[in-house]
Nucleic acid binder design. Structure first.
Lengths: 339, 339
DNA sequence: CTGAAAGCGCTTACAG
DNA sequence: CTGAAAGCGCTTACAG
């Protein structure tokens, strides 16, 4: 019943080597045998075994997907989901399938990502996370396995990364606030452990200073993560502090949405009482009231480029290559004019 | 440099068989050899090769994940993303990793899912889709590979499925509309090809009749998919038809959000002019204005149960088992009282 | 253009 | 409690 290369060879009356060459599209096979063997493969519904091939070649045609970190950014964060979606499409186009490593503690080979990559002989990895390196990621980064980081600066010889220009992003936000007449600016980030959040914050501070404005630490708050409830709580803290900033930049759209919920509860109007700008441009920005002005990260592009970079890393042993993507300000209703 | 079982055996001065038994936790090994070998494995950083093991055992410890269908429901739909997230957690707990089949046309082995399952020797599959069976899914369903369907009624001997009770869901919606005083009821579905959408519609019609109300076909509209723009267009059609229903049930929350956007554009108020109920209870329901009354599908539970069902199917050759999950009405602001 | 044979790294009866 | 050997289904020099 179940077919293998040997049976196909027998039925066709050729050698196993010949069948193998046909499967792998070698050119030095006569059209006649090729046609015959291909037809038999079709009729019998034969499919080559990936494990046998992987064992023989050391290539699995599998890409490991790693959601790392305590922030537990999983499928639930819209930004990463969309990047991953685009990445998956492009990798599929290049002939790869995706292996998602579960990050449960109880798993046979715990958080040890390098071990699991070797176990499955993945050809490369995409590492998605918005926070600092944990040891297991760092180990993988510095191994010989090609890795591409999204929003995480990998440094290994066979690694690369892609992220938005976080400094420029913050500059654009401050510039927009400034031009709209906002002067007293606040920031709501993720945890203090998030590199991404910190980069945006530092860029924000630099930009504020470059516009000759004062930086008021009281309006700089970190939350627990990039999700909505965290933004809600952070904004409540700012409100309860007594003195309100004129505008707040939030490290993610979900944080911004949470912040707006807190403001609404306190009968503060956006953008009249306070201007809000988010980050990511997830779909939800268009559905909130008011709609959310935000920094668009081109998720489709980030995913596609991540795939290309990884593909090059896998095939050309190409140089470490990092890409930063230009962020774009999307103006909607949550940040009006104060003039 | 790179380790294998043979080298480990040599270093430890034991046979390959013995090392294999230790790796696989056989009991008939002396504590002494076990400790010695384990220590060597640790020191050398040895990791068993999955491909060799899979080749020898025919078990890959991999679960295939299939997003099927023209609706192109991918990572982008919040409902499926959350179900999958929960499924992934539970499967990880059970020791499995997830293999995502890319659905690009250009892929080596096209849409032929059964072939790809055999190729990778997955131990089981989860099939996620809200629409009718395509031939390739049906073929997989009726194969010997354990499959679990989410929102799709699989019928094979080694298959099972899980979904919300779509009829009951519609009944709860109509009941709520009725008790709130709404009498003229409409429905916005996905395409006419979506089983899920059709089940909800049929249940809705039955429920309307059981309450002694009239069914007005003019207020029953199908869109293109389960996403926001489709709901927006569908509601515009209803508005332009001239006569408005008093309330509309939408086959997904995103459809409902789109419908509310169309109403807002036409200066129609929700819930004063028209009541809206969505379906899924995605996070966004809490962030819209007005917040969205909806039917909660317990995504966490659905994912967990899907994992358990699949695990049983894989291990016990258990009977086909299907589970329906009780839907729950979540009352928010989009459907007020008409009394 | 075709084929024989070794090898990839495991598991599994089976013998002792 | 331990080990020798066959087998899983491929690929890849190499020979012809």
């Amino acid at each position: 019943m179940s077919m293998n290369i040997k049976k196909i060879a027998e039925i066709a009356g050729v050698s196993v080597s010949t069948v193998s060459k046909i499967i792998n599209n070698y050119s030095d096979i006569s059209e006649e045998t090729k046609t015959k063997v291909l037809e038999i493969m079709r009729q019998t519904g034969y499919v080559p075994s990936n494990s046998a091939k992987t064992l023989a070649t050391k290539k699995s045609n599998l890409i490991g997907v790693i959601f790392a970190g305590k922030l537990n950014i999983d499928f639930t964060h819209p930004f990463f989901v969309e990047v991953l979606n685009s990445f998956k499409k492009q990798m599929g186009f290049l002939g790869y399938d995706l292996l998602f490593f579960s990050n449960e503690k109880s798993h046979a080979i715990d958080g040890d990502y390098l071990a699991r990559c070797r176990h499955f002989q993945v050809d490369g990895c995409i590492i998605i996370t918005g926070q600092q390196l944990e040891p297991s990621i760092s180990e993988l980064d510095h191994s010989d396995i090609p890795c591409i980081g999204v929003d995480i600066q990998l440094a290994g010889k066979s690694s690369g990364y892609i992220m938005s220009e976080n400094y420029k992003m913050s500059f654009k936000v401050v510039e927009h606030f400034y031009l709209q007449g906002y002067r007293e600016l606040g920031y709501i980030g993720s945890t203090s452990e998030s590199d991404i959040s910190n980069m945006r914050k530092n860029g924000y501070i630099e930009a504020i200073e470059s516009f000759g404005l004062a930086v008021n630490e009281k309006w700089f708050v970190n939350g627990d993560n990039f999700f909505e409830p965290s933004g809600y709580e952070a904004m409540k803290k700012i409100i309860n502090s007594g003195q309100l900033p004129q505008a707040v930049f939030c490290a993610s759209d979900l944080i911004a949405i949470g912040a707006m919920r807190a403001l609404k509860e306190h009968h503060l109007s956006v953008p009249d009482d306070i201007g809000i700008i988010g980050c990511d441009d997830i779909d939800a920005c268009k559905y909130t009231t008011p709609t959310l002005t935000t920094i668009r990260q081109n998720k489709d592009k980030i995913g596609r480029i991540a795939a290309s970079l990884l593909y090059d890393l896998i095939n050309n042993q190409s140089e470490t290559s990092n890409v930063v993507v230009e962020p774009e300000l999307i103006i909607r209703e949550s940040c009006g004019s104060r003039h």
